[in-house]
Design a protein around this nucleic acid. Structure first.
Lengths: 157, 157
DNA sequence: TCCGTTAATGCTACAATGTTGCAACAGAAG
DNA sequence: CTTCTGTTGCAACATTGTAGCATTAACGGA
């Protein structure tokens, strides 16, 4: 598949060695974990379980469905990956680039794709009712992406 | 029996007759639909399928699981209800109070409850990449609600 | 009030996504 | 190389949501 070289994208700017990332968390460096981190780093958008599984298979990394679930859970727990509720039923995952780099996401309701909006902060720290403690905010915009929007215009023409 | 047709009032002020709401959409007024709308109107927070089903059962309204799914889909389609991705796997539903009344939601990660933040607008209409068309925005804050936050303090004490 | 039409319902079966328990394997340290 | 234990793989299950189709009942008209 594609090489992780996208100089304009903030995503690929700080690609760290998966092995170091994993070892730094005190976890064992296994085939699956390395491959999943590499896949997430290479993907410029949040990926679903299915997509990650397909990437592993394509890379020749044998794996079980459950292992993938557990691997992703672990990566999220360690703060290496981040889990996103895309608006569909399945979770999507992306590499975490530090707290400062939280951003909103756009979900295309035609093609189902989710893209990162690196420039849009996830929240404006709104005021909460007394006693509520904010952990994190998730902002998801829904609509049609550029590709699908174009198709729609053509459809109605 | 006729309710005002274009409400712009606040949350508690515009509880409309479920039968009128349903009939106004050209749908048949059935037990299930009426009971679901009443349940949503009575609940001050977005409710899950399960919770709505339990409410129907408690009210003595027999229903099938599939019927409930279809009823809710229909209500969302008609703009009577709104579907919310709570951050868990299941959808939640609330009565729609007009476009102007869109608001953010808070998801408590301890008790799983979702509460409406009526004062927090769903989005500040952020700038999208060229060609993207925004349909709607969903802002979900995650953390601990007042009740659970209190418990946590007691836990560690 | 009764009747016919057809939107809604209820059932069964199925699909998609995620979880649990446990035996077997393999990464890392000695 | 051996040991210890974190990970994996498998099978079975749980939850959430859909599809197809025969039956029921809402509602307008006779």
């Amino acid at each position: 598949m594609s090489a992780p070289s996208h100089p304009h994208s903030s995503h690929s700017a700080d690609v760290q060695d998966p092995r170091s990332l994993i070892a730094a968390c005190g976890g064992r460096v296994t085939r699956t974990r390395v491959a999943v981190v590499e896949t997430l780093q290479a993907g410029r958008q949040p990926l679903s379980h299915d997509e990650i599984g397909a990437a592993l298979a394509a890379a020749g990394v044998a794996h079980d469905r459950v292992t993938l679930y557990r691997t992703l859970d672990w990566l999220v727990e360690q703060g290496i990956a981040r889990r996103i509720a895309s608006g569909e039923r399945a979770w999507r995952f992306e590499i975490a680039h530090g707290e400062a780099h939280r951003h909103a996401h756009f979900h295309c309701e035609r093609c189902g794709q989710v893209v990162c909006l690196d420039d849009v902060p996830a929240s404006a720290t709104p005021s909460l009712p007394a006693g509520f403690e904010l952990d994190r905010a998730e902002l998801v915009l829904h609509g049609a992406c550029a590709e699908c929007g174009r198709q729609r215009v053509q459809d109605s023409a």
